[in-house]
Design a protein around this nucleic acid. Structure first.
Lengths: 351, 351
DNA sequence: ATGAAAGCGCTAACAC
DNA sequence: GTGTTAGCGCTTTCAT
């Protein structure tokens, strides 16, 4: 009897299907089939194999299997930063669906840097992942690296921060309606001089949000005041400074619509610093429903993007297609997740 | 000439080192060596190979390499929930160091469920990961699955939520001093009836935090009031209910020390609901320095655990050992990361 | 400095 | 229902 395991010693070699085959006097092929649930194999054999596998402490070798089959049950996920709540939730959503389907996920961070993103994609191609799910870095200048992935038989699904010019499946939020709703809500609450805090315009969704804002402001018959649109990088300091610019103008806006919750938070903090009352003198709203928007006081009106659901949807696109549950169209799908306006104290001055 | 790439068509087969070898009239072995920077290969050959590899659009096949070498440049990370800020930061730290060393990370969530954790570890063993970095699920009853990993030549590094009885490298926070500091701080601020909101006691760190609290309360000469210690699960509702129990006693505590920020937040909310003034009538403090503790008003005193650093440290333990930078002791290392008390408004009633 | 050859562990086409 | 055989792409020992 071999006590090496119970003694906590490292075994010299892992058990393979050959060991199982030898022990049962059958061939490795049969063992492989049995372990994979092949229908042709008799239940008796399957049972024996399962028992012996357990007894010999067999572990499936994913590398060998992947090499042989040319694929792998792995999804590569590339996001700017996993510490951003939106992304960690999206990843959680992907992981959920992946795990249900027996897939694992490899995570890479781009840190919003193009070079790091390219390196990550390269690595994932080397890993032969079945699919790359990506939210583009702010610094991404082209999508050649993703085209390269596709050329190498790796499927690509973009989510949230996408590039339309690359024809892949995409999961994005509906923008126009929710922005229209938000602007209308501000109007209904009596705000008439609405400013906008715009994120990095090289990122698709931030550009679209700004455009939707401008469109809807015009729709309400307001003039589009250039000075009422400030840009900020996606950090807190920068948003505070941008908000300060807006709030120290001669004709101070009575509302700030920020393209992200961090932007809204910056404006919120700056308003308090300047002694401006929210929501009486100033409305503030953001985008993403980050946890803190709910618990600050006054709480901040925002938009729930359902990021976890976006991750799940991305996963489902992949697995529906793998399992042929989709109509046989070869065209890329774009799934639009409807976001939800969440009205809170920061924009409600009417009773 | 082959236009298949530029036409966006999927190539029938990936380029291998054989293709490069054939094109250059050398052997695959030489190509492999050249690509891996083998010192015996002439610079001329290396150059040629590099150029041809690029020209033929060669991608290294990690599976084949891993199968051959029996290892993989992959770290498996298992955490309860990646959406918890503490964990996503720790993962970010691990990813940083891993990526610098040419490793990728595979992420699994246990959802605090033992069975899911076991399945995740099993998968990671199958993937032949070099190392599993894990923070145990609340529901984890034994560490056999991790012993199993070790038996299969997979290194294990535990962080934060660890089990001491399993002899692996560990990265944890120093507890006693920071809890002592916190209790002393509360005392200095004049709080004399300090309650404690204790997390799930089957998790190491939550038990240790409670024990440290009790020890330090006694040290200050206070009696240990049983009714002043309430338990809660790690969610918001449960912490609110636990706080309610504490705050509706006849002899209401004048301070609540929560074992997590979520616990502190629950107490904070309940205090407001009951009209109890913070910090005048009640001090509140937590653990982890979650983002919201800083921006609520009054802001919440807490402990910075440096989770991202903990992730980096875990990574460094692995790579220092891989690169033989460690003294040749075979004993597991325990690295203790010193946390930092962050005093904020919620515990300061003195000027 | 490079070539020849074997084999990592698995799967799948083909045979019976 | 099971065996035979070949090979996925790479690395590495041994030879030259």
């Amino acid at each position: 009897m071999d006590y090496s395991f119970s003694l906590g010693m490292k075994p010299s070699k892992r058990t393979t299907i050959y060991d199982i085959a030898k022990a049962l006097n059958i061939t490795p092929a049969t063992v492989s089939r049995a372990l994979n649930g092949n229908k042709l194999i008799s239940d008796a054999t399957k049972q024996q194999v399962a028992i012996m596998a357990k007894k010999l402490n067999y572990k499936h070798n994913a590398h060998a299997s992947n090499l042989r089959t040319g694929g792998s049950k792995t999804i590569g996920v590339v996001v700017p930063q996993i510490t951003i709540n939106f992304f960690s939730k999206a990843i959680a959503g992907i992981e959920e669906v992946a795990s249900l389907n027996g897939y694992t996920i490899i995570i890479c961070q781009s840190d919003d840097d193009f070079e790091k993103e390219k390196a990550a994609v390269e690595t994932l191609i080397n890993q032969n992942v079945a699919c790359i799910m990506i939210s583009l870095a702010a610094g991404t200048k082209s999508t050649e690296h993703l085209q390269e992935a596709i050329n190498n038989n790796v499927r690509v699904i973009q989510f949230d921060r996408t590039d339309e010019s690359l024809p892949t499946d995409r999961v994005i939020n509906e923008i126009d309606n929710v922005v229209a709703e938000m602007v209308q809500h501000l109007f209904d609450q009596g705000y008439r001089n609405i400013a906008y805090l715009a994120g990095p315009q090289n990122i698709d969704i931030f550009r679209k949000r700004r455009e939707a804002f401008e469109r809807n402001i015009k729709k309400l018959g307001f003039p589009l005041v250039k000075k009422n649109i400030e840009h900020y990088d996606l950090d807190r300091d920068s948003s505070r400074m941008a908000a300060r610019k807006l709030l120290t103008q001669k004709k101070r806006p009575d509302a700030i619509f920020a393209s992200s919750d961090l932007g809204a938070l910056g404006a919120w903090e700056m308003a308090r610093e300047l002694g401006i009352q929210i929501p009486e003198e100033l409305a503030i709203c953001g985008f993403s429903n980050e946890f803190y928007t709910e618990i600050v006081s006054p709480s901040i009106t925002t938009v729930n993007q359902f990021s976890q659901k976006m991750g799940q949807v991305a996963g489902n696109i992949l697995f529906d297609s793998i399992n042929n549950k989709l109509p046989n169209s070869e065209k890329p799908v774009t799934v639009i997740v409807k976001p939800e306006l969440i009205v809170r104290e920061s924009t409600c001055r009417k009773v």
